[in-house]
Nucleic acid binder design. Structure first.
Lengths: 107, 107
DNA sequence: TTATATTATCGTAATATTGCAATATAGAGT
DNA sequence: ACTCTATATTGCAATATTACGATAATATAA
């Protein structure tokens, strides 16, 4: 197949998986770390810093945008990528809830 | 291509991405949630509960095992899957560190 | 307008993931 | 030994992801 059977899972399960999928690539981790370190959220040093081609970086940025983790102006020349604080904390909370609601009833 | 250029990223970046990849499928989220809810860490009701074929469940369990999130006895008939508490908390901490070390210097 | 710089999109190739049927393996019970 | 039950492995098809060259689009500067 190759396609996940998303319909047999709950919405929260699918949503967390979708968010995890965005974090499941070192380039996207690196991009998020880099954007956060910048004083002014400048854009395409990313191509130089990360070491991937410009279309590839653009695609990764798009994946990150899809789950709402970036905000700023995306049109024209002087772009501005930065972390969407509200969404970031929401996602942080989602992971924390997942990791906290676990029992350890082991054999 | 299709293969990530892992060599251009740092070890922590690759490790976090690898862990996120395991969580990047709703079936694996569901499996982890189910295992944790069980009083006694019993095994292959998972096939019935999740609704995927037995080989598929087995493969998902293997992915989860790879990052050390399961412990128990894995040989023979009466298997025992359960959460590896130490590893679980380690991973929870890794995500929390990642989410906490972010600035919000937006435009 | 024309050039330049920046980002997005298209097209495509290589590789990875998901899922399952068929089969193999391993232990418990008879 | 054989059977039953539970899990793993193999092989394969469908789909997704990653990456990049070529090209398009968009804004600024000259």
């Amino acid at each position: 197949m190759g396609a996940s059977k998303t319909h047999i899972f709950s919405l929260p399960q699918n949503e967390l998986a979708l968010i995890a999928k965005v974090l499941a690539h070192p380039a996207r981790i690196a991009i998020l770390e880099y954007i956060s370190r910048q004083e002014n959220c400048i854009c395409n040093d990313l191509v130089d810093v990360i070491g991937l081609a410009q279309p590839t970086i653009s695609q990764h940025l798009n994946e990150i945008k899809k789950i709402g983790l970036l905000k700023g102006t995306f049109e024209g020349k002087n772009l501005c990528y930065c972390i969407n604080r509200e969404r970031w904390e929401e996602i942080q909370h989602a992971f924390n809830t997942f990791f906290s609601n676990i029992n350890y009833n082991c054999c």
